[in-house]
């Protein structure tokens, strides 16, 4: 594997600590300063996840959603005078109506998988509009890449937290979006979206070099992301081990 230009890691030890107390579930993460042109999002530190007015949007499947964080920062080449690429990280809280969706608890891994697959299906099938397709063949639903079966969902274990990981997006774009989901109660989950731009093959050295680099950058972020579950959640998690 050829690496032409090394990319410097973010120094997370010097990044501010961001915390959220979600009704006694605690999220702790190191987040570098925002460096993009869009307005960053950071929700209040204390949120009552059982209060309806905590949520800003109602999404498909009756899911209520709240943006907790949306930040972006750049990565530098070690020896070149320009940025290697940019990361956008968004953390979202979901409250899932489990009865309506005929599941018992998101802490049950198979239930969590079902919700992710159902949500993705509902999202990407809504482009199946003949008029839209006539106007732009690229909008045909068949072209979208998204998790369609359990094999498309992968386990990602960092800091003792077991995330469900998958990708989605459109092949006309240079890179898919990475998603990571983690249930924090029987009907709440945390989604982390990661969008990576730049990190070009010809500058990094090879496609394999880029893949390895992106995995490293994602891993570094999650190594500085901690979830402290409530005792009730931890007890229920034991049931599904």
């Amino acid at each position: 594997m050829v690496i032409k230009n090394a990319v410097l890691s973010t120094d997370y030890s010097k990044s501010p600590l961001v915390t959220f107390n979600l009704s006694d579930t605690h999220l702790l993460m190191r987040v570098p300063p925002h460096e993009s042109t869009y307005t960053p999002i950071q929700a209040p530190s204390n949120l009552d996840i059982y209060a309806p007015d905590t949520y800003q949007e109602k999404a498909n499947l009756g899911i209520l959603s709240r943006n907790l964080l949306n930040y972006s920062w750049n990565y530098m080449f070690k020896d070149l005078p320009y940025n290697a690429g940019t990361i956008m990280v968004a953390v979202t809280l979901w409250k899932v109506p489990i009865v309506q969706n005929k599941i018992n608890s998101l802490l049950n891994p198979s239930n969590l998988n079902n919700i992710i697959l159902s949500f993705s299906d509902s999202l990407f099938r809504d482009n199946n509009d003949e008029l839209i397709k006539q106007r732009d063949p690229n909008l045909d639903e068949q072209l979208w890449i998204y998790p369609k079966q359990e094999e498309d969902l992968h386990s990602y274990n960092v800091n003792g937290n077991n995330w469900i990981r998958y990708k989605d997006g459109h092949p006309s774009m240079p890179r898919l979006t990475y998603w990571f989901s983690n249930a924090i109660t029987k009907d709440h989950l945390i989604n982390v979206g990661i969008n990576l731009t730049g990190f070009l093959d010809e500058q990094i050295g090879s496609p394999e070099g880029v893949d390895t680099l992106l995995e490293r950058l994602i891993q570094e972020f999650f190594e500085h992301f901690h979830i402290q579950y409530t005792p009730e959640t931890l007890a229920e998690m034991e049931l599904y081990k």
Binding site: E57, A59, N60, N67, N83, N138, S172, T197
Partner: peptide, 28 residues
């Protein structure tokens, strides 16, 4: 000093989904 940008030039369709922090983008 912007990053190396791998995004293609030209027309894109931008679509928003409730519950998702990023827009869905298709090169048109």
């Amino acid at each position: 000093a912007f990053s190396n940008d791998s995004s293609p030039t030209g027309l894109h369709n931008v679509h928003f989904d409730s519950g998702r922090p990023f827009s869905r983008i298709v090169k048109s």
